[in-house]
Amino acid sequence: MHETHDHSHRDEGNDGMPLRNKLVWIVFAVIAGFYLWTEHRAHLLGALPYLLLLACPLMHLFMHHGHAHGKTPPDKSNPGQP
């Protein structure tokens, strides 16, 4: 519940994302930007395995993040309001 990285954004009403989330966002954005801007041609296919490899630590980070928090919001009792 009160896991280690919890207090990095414990201050009430804080909208700032923790560094880790920002990092993940930036990595995603860089890869996405790479795809949107570069010539999307055959040479990219050569990079495919590396990019997938790159995705692994990224996903790990995220999955781990999810676990560390222990409990996810119970969706039944608290309907989200996206």
């Binding site: 966002w25 995603f28 954005a29 890869i31 996405a32 495919l48 997938l52 995220f62 996206p82």
Partner: peptide, 20 residues
């Protein structure tokens, strides 16, 4: 690759829970 990337990107920051 592009589909997976952009879907994952959204998934990471949306984290669907409910059916909706």
């Amino acid at each position: 690759l592009n589909s997976v990337l952009f879907i994952l990107f959204a998934f990471s920051f949306y984290k669907p829970h409910s059916r909706r």
